[in-house]
Design a protein around this nucleic acid. Structure first.
Length: 267
DNA sequence: AATGGGACCTGCGCGC
DNA sequence: TGCGCGCAGGTCCCAT
């Protein structure tokens, strides 16, 4: 599911709902989510401790635990977090809080990751991660993309290069900018790169405002669907008319991932 | 440096 | 109605 807007939505929800709460116990319905640590050790490190703060870096969620360390959550493809009074469908790990509610770590495909770290900034996934989109200005974005030979759409999704963009928003951004997803990044003019940058910021901001996109199983922290899905212009719109020119949207595999685009608007 | 394929997983929707 | 197949928002690892 989750790209930057969805993870940011979950983060904001957790900040308002669970910061200050104590994790009474952790229930493991499926241990495979837990990486690099035993359930016993994980429980020892977090049970009875207070959730102090919530951080997002790229698509990674970090829960600061008072006088302990950090719970690291990666939702990968089908993971999501729901704060509620009951055990939700596909709940793989449940954090039982002192107010009687649970943070449900739900994950249909069990590809998500739950870790513990004493120093989250030293995690390989964090160390290797590119900059946040919102930390870049137009000039820095153009400089970054201007000397890379990769195809633009897969490059936008490369977390080592730029953090937070996935298959939905990469497609939306290049559509918005009128750029073919298979174009080489270093062949794009500064004007085209600038346009992609502006589109990306606009789309991500709007998606955060709408609490993400709900294609398939994704839900925000309350278990509600995000509202950005209805604003998507090309993602999963193959064979439907382009919203700008009515040409049929096509779908191709680019960089190993399904990619929808308008063959007329995107050059 | 860039790209492609496979692996990790489950479950949904579709066509027959 | 039932079954097999393809496909899915991510990331890592390996080979070329």
């Amino acid at each position: 599911m989750p790209e930057l807007p969805e993870v940011e939505t979950v983060k904001r929800h957790l900040i308002s709902e669970v910061v200050g709460k104590t994790i009474v116990s952790v229930v493991y319905r499926d241990k495979r989510l837990l990486k690099g640590i035993t359930t016993k050790k994980f429980s020892e490190l977090v049970e009875g401790k207070k959730i102090e703060r919530i951080i997002r870096r790229g698509k990674v969620l970090i829960l600061g635990i008072k006088e302990s360390g950090f719970i690291i959550i990666h939702l990968r493809i089908s993971g999501w977090l729901i704060v509620s009074k009951k055990e939700e469908k596909f709940a793989r790990v449940l954090f039982c809080l002192d107010d009687g509610r649970f943070i449900n770590f739900c994950d249909q495909r069990v590809l998500g990751e739950l870790k513990f770290s004493f120093n989250w900034q030293d995690l390989p996934i964090i160390k290797k991660m590119g900059q946040e989109v919102f930390d870049l200005d137009s000039k820095a974005f153009i400089a970054l993309f201007g000397n890379k030979k990769s195809k633009i759409k897969p490059l936008l999704m490369d977390q080592h290069f730029l953090a937070g963009i996935g298959n939905i928003y990469a497609q939306e951004a290049v559509f918005c900018a009128g750029v073919h997803p298979g174009r080489q990044s270093n062949d794009l003019s500064p004007k085209e790169l600038s346009k992609i940058y502006q589109c990306l910021k606009k789309i991500l901001s709007k998606a955060i405002e709408k609490k993400g996109s709900s294609v398939d199983t994704y839900r925000d922290g309350e278990g509600k669907k995000g509202e950005y899905a209805e604003l998507l212009k090309v993602y999963q719109r193959q064979n439907l008319p382009c919203v700008k020119c009515k040409t049929k949207i096509i779908k191709e595999t680019i960089g190993g991932r399904g990619t929808c685009f308008c063959p007329r608007c995107q050059n």
